[in-house]
């Protein structure tokens, strides 16, 4: 049987983390190992994690500094790879998987690969918001032939990219394409990584695998929403996406992104000072081109 590692990355979410871990441990096809990466949390996270110390299938990695979601996922995935995982299932610390989420991912990926006749580099879940609606921030981008498996009766959709909220990568994809870019810190790390691995073929969204993303509001990324409080996140987002579009697509893609950014900021009547800040980040992104790190084979 395949060895599956679940990786949970957490930072200052002590109130939700316990439920995430419990939902992962209660899977009807349990993960063989659970790696929890604590990104140097300063709240009660340590107290929550204490309860799971010493469990044979749980490993807690405590980082000495906050490396962002990107750094945390890279660390956790590298560790799972080192521990010999055949599949690595990753999620945020506010993602509550339903009890059959992992099994449905494994079954869905296997069925999709059999039908397609090739290896597929990831399988992701349907992400719901707390009220059962689709979670706007985590809806994956489909391929042009997204219904290829649906017409054969499979509850699977082909996708180009998805978020790091319940997505499972086979070992070979991590060996071949490396780890997420820690340098991105936060935002667009998931888009860059899933797009990177689709060089080998499309990903698959398994519609029977479902999770709930416990966000405060159900809203996707929208540059009209930029304000002084959330600017720090958009700062990373703009730099990272500009870098990706320029270095991994082409200058025209970067220009289209610039236009989308400009239009959004204008529509939201975002103060000029913040717009200039993000424009500088866009330019920084053109000079920013981190390279992937590859995990070491240990077991």
């Amino acid at each position: 049987m395949s060895n599956v590692a679940a990786v949970i990355v957490t930072y200052n979410r002590a109130d939700k983390l316990g439920k995430v871990i419990e939902n992962v441990l209660a899977q009807d096809r349990p993960a063989d190992q659970v790696v929890i990466v604590d990104n140097a949390s300063t709240d009660d996270t340590a107290r929550v994690l204490e309860q799971y110390e010493g469990r044979p299938s749980v490993e807690i990695l405590r980082l000495t500094e906050n490396t962002g979601g990107a750094g945390g996922f890279a660390t956790g995935m590298a560790r799972a790879h080192e521990r010999g995982a055949d599949f690595v299932w990753i999620m945020d610390d506010d993602c509550y998987p339903d009890s059959d989420a992992l099994r449905e991912l494994l079954d869905g990926l296997e069925a999709a690969e059999t039908r397609m006749g090739l290896r597929l580099p990831f399988a992701c879940s349907v992400v719901r918001w707390s009220n059962g609606d689709i979670c706007e921030m985590n809806n994956p981008e489909t391929t042009w032939d997204w219904g290829k498996l649906l017409v054969h009766g499979q509850q699977n959709v082909l996708v180009n990219a998805c978020s790091f909220v319940s997505v499972m990568f086979p070992r070979w994809a991590i060996t071949q394409f490396g780890l997420p870019l820690s340098e991105y810190f936060i935002w667009f790390d998931d888009q860059e990584y899933t797009r990177r691995v689709t060089a080998a073929g499309p990903g698959v969204q398994c519609l029977k695998s479902t999770v709930t993303h416990d966000l405060g509001a159900n809203r996707g990324v929208n540059f009209a929403d930029v304000n002084a409080n959330n600017l720090w996140k958009f700062t990373y987002g703009v730099r990272n996406e500009a870098s990706y579009r320029w270095h991994h697509e082409d200058p025209f893609a970067a220009a289209r992104f610039a236009q989308r950014l400009f239009t959004g900021l204008r529509a939201g009547k975002v103060p000029m000072r913040l717009r200039l800040h993000l424009a500088r980040k866009f330019v920084e992104g053109i000079r920013f081109d981190p390279q992937p790190r590859f995990p070491r084979t240990v077991l």
């Binding site: 055949d86 290896r119 070979w172 991590i174 060996t175 084979t297």
Partner: peptide
Amino acid sequence: SPQLRDYLIDRQGLKR
């Protein structure tokens, strides 16, 4: 060795 396993399966695409 695990390195050879990963090379054959992950890099060269042999079935697991």
